[in-house]
Write a protein that binds this DNA or RNA. Structure first.
Lengths: 145, 145
DNA sequence: TGGGATTTTATGGGCGTCAATGGGATTTCA
DNA sequence: TGAAATCCCATTGACGCCCATAAAATCCCA
């Protein structure tokens, strides 16, 4: 299964349109899909996306009951905010305003491949996150030595 | 399995193109691949590369969850910066600008074989590293004698 | 074994194609 | 009928693909 990897920064235009990087489109279209499924991250100021197939099992994770079940919380929150965004003829998606707000996007957006999924970040926020992650990795490595 | 070994210095041209040394190409093509997978090192000012097959299990190292996990940090950082660079008809790759910047490359790049993978260094930085390594070896040897 | 011929490598440059982007026209829905 | 969403086309800049050259390594045969 081809994966999402690499980082690509594209522009968000006045209409809220954003080109999905060609390598990511190749993954999506390689599965016969013509849209991407995107939702705001529950924990970070970014969006998360993949082919819609990634979220199909989410439905099955929700216990179908008439009594509220706390174990369903995360899946239910994601389902509630999940959107299927069609790719236009040029490979772009239109980001809903709420998504732009949640990820604090301005005129640029960075697609970050993470294997089965990808994230969309405001570029400067992504830089800060990467610095923090690298610090954690370096600290953990030093601990081993 | 054939390994990467030896050091080869080639030019980075105005287009950011860089010839992959023929012996390294032989390793790659011996596995039926037509591209190299490269990412900046997390620990040093250099790039690391291999056939893409070396990175295929990286995806499975990332726990697929909607909750961030620090244990995924290293794999996520590499996945985010990993690029698959196709070899052109003459056995060259085009280095992205970020890669050139991260490794401080100017007009030359040194391929250094490391067995399963190889590194790409700015030649003078490589010299400094080799000196330092040799010093450590000598110091350790003196301690033994 | 020497030396010329051939092949392989590394490198430079030109050109066509495609990706990314912007703007306008058309449709859709309230 | 107005606002928003969708579609279509134009531009431009990057990238892939092709060929040309030169140097180095290899081969081959007398």
């Amino acid at each position: 299964m081809k994966a999402f990897f690499g980082t690509f920064v594209n522009k968000v235009d006045a209409k809220g349109r954003l080109s999905v990087p060609a390598p990511f489109r190749a993954v999506i279209q390689g599965r016969g899909l013509t849209s991407v499924a995107i939702h705001p991250s529950l924990f970070e100021s970014c969006l998360e996306g993949a082919g819609f197939d990634r979220f199909e099992n989410l439905e099955s994770q929700i216990t179908d009951t008439f009594v509220p079940a706390p174990s369903n919380d995360a899946a239910e929150l994601i389902m509630a905010e999940l959107r299927e965004l069609p790719l236009d003829g040029e490979g772009r998606v239109v980001l809903p305003d709420e998504f732009i707000a949640k990820a604090h996007l301005k005129d640029q957006a960075a697609f970050v491949g993470q294997g089965r999924k990808f994230q969309i970040w405001e570029p400067s926020a992504l830089e800060a996150l990467k610095k923090a992650k690298l610090q954690r990795v370096l600290a953990a490595t030093k601990g081993d030595a």
